[in-house]
Amino acid sequence: MSDQPAIILSSVDYDRLDGLLAKVKELSPVHEQLLLEMERATLVEPEQVPADVVTMHSKVRFKLKSSGKEFEKTLCYPHELEAISDGLSIFAPVGAALIGLSVGQHIDWPMPGGQLDQVEIIELVDQPERKGEYHR
C-alpha cells in the first residue's frame, strides 16, 4: 500500500497500542497492518496533536468509498466496546484505518475478504486532546 497519507500518533496512544499488541499471542492481518501504520507514524506528545487528527477516544465521521455510506463512531480499545454505545475497536479493520488520519485525508485499507476500500475522514466531531484530556 504505497502512497499512504502521513499520519500522526500521540505518544500515549502509541505506547498503549504497543502494549496491547505485545499481549496478542497470534497477530491477525488487522494487527499486522496497525503495527505497520504505527511504524510509519509521526509521534508527538499529546499536547502537540493537531485538532483535526483522529486519536483514541475521538468521535469521527467517516465514509467508505465502496458503499458511499457515512458513519459516526468513537474509536476505542477492544475492552471498552461494551461501555461505548457508538464504539469502534482499534482492532477492527476500519478502526485501525482511522487512527492518525486528519480531516479530509483518505486511506486505502484492506477489509475482511481481502478487498481494498477507501476510508475518508469527513469530520472530527470530538477529540480528547482538543479538550485538554491528554491521558485518556
Rank of each mutant, 00 (worst) to 15 (best):
I122E: 00
E129P: 05
R40N: 12
P50N: 01
I121F: 06
Q105T: 01
P93Q: 06
G132Y: 05
K69W: 13
I107G: 03
V49G: 04
K63L: 12
D117P: 01
H135L: 12
L35W: 06
P110F: 08
S67G: 02
I84N: 02
D117I: 02
T42W: 04
S89D: 01
R61G: 00
D117Q: 00
D86C: 02
K69I: 14
M111G: 05
L101D: 07
Q48P: 05
G113S: 10
D108T: 15
K59R: 15
E133S: 13
K69A: 15
E123V: 09
A41M: 12
L116T: 14
G95N: 00
Q33G: 14
S66C: 11
L98A: 01
H57M: 14
D108E: 14
E45W: 05
A83Y: 12
E82Q: 11
R40P: 10
L101G: 02
D108S: 14
E37K: 14
I99G: 07
P112F: 04
V54G: 00
G95Y: 01
L101I: 01
E133N: 13
K65F: 07
I121Q: 00
E72M: 05
S58E: 00
S58K: 06
Y77K: 10
K69Y: 12
A83I: 10
P93S: 08
V53L: 04
R40Q: 07
G132A: 03
Q48I: 00
Q33S: 11
S89G: 00
K131E: 15
L43F: 00
G100W: 03
E47M: 01
A41R: 07
A83R: 00
L34T: 07
E120Y: 11
E133T: 08
E72Y: 02
K131P: 13
L36D: 15
V125E: 00
G68W: 05
L124E: 10
M56V: 13
P128T: 02
L35T: 11
S67I: 10
E120G: 12
F91S: 15
C76Y: 04
L36E: 15
V125I: 12
Q118D: 10
E70A: 05
E37I: 11
A51E: 14
Q105F: 08
M56E: 06
K59T: 14
E72D: 02
K131A: 15
H79W: 15
I107E: 06
P46W: 03
H57D: 06
V60C: 09
